[in-house]
Nucleic acid binder design. Sequence first.
DNA 1: TGATAGATCGGCT
DNA 2: GCCGATCTATCAG
Length: 187
Amino acid sequence: MRELLEQDAEVVAPLILGWKLEREINGQKLVGKIVETEAYDFRDAASHSFRGETPRTKVMFGPAGFAYVYFTYGMHYCFNVVTGQKDEGSAVLIRALEPLKGIEAMRANRGQDNLLNLTNGPAKLCQALVIGKNMYGHDLRQAPLKLTMAENVPYKQVVRATRIGITNDTHRLWRFYIKNNKFISKA
DNA sequence: TGATAGATCGGCT
DNA sequence: GCCGATCTATCAG
């Protein structure tokens, strides 16, 4: 798995669609399928790594397969998987999950009943899976937050689009999602 | 040292 | 559809 993640973010982002994210908390397993991602790398003015390494972005410049979690807008966390070679500074933002297991716990964490509104956004899925700065730099091969491979989503089912919520390098088609999936963050 | 914009979300108009 | 919440990093002065 490490070798796959050491490729460019732009390659890894569509590749990990369909993979699962497993969170263990209080002896319970919360599992979601990755249905939407975005790629970011150091050549990209929209990326946190664009201006070089800082204390916040340190893990982005480490080896692939670790968690880069950042806090933004004064209240939200977002979760990324570090990709590429060491010192490269690239990562894939997980923008949406399809809840598979531990759905009741996710509802409780989110304070939301609607299944469709549990993990359909980068900050929402962090709240549902209780991902915060405690997971910053975590090795995703291990509990309590684990990334596991699954069958590739067929090429025809992957939609490529422009990224959301950025103002630089908006021309890059670096957002990927599974066609017709109900849990995408934006229609 | 101060201002501001940000890989967002939810509530209100 | 717009606005407020309110932490962090960066840029201007």
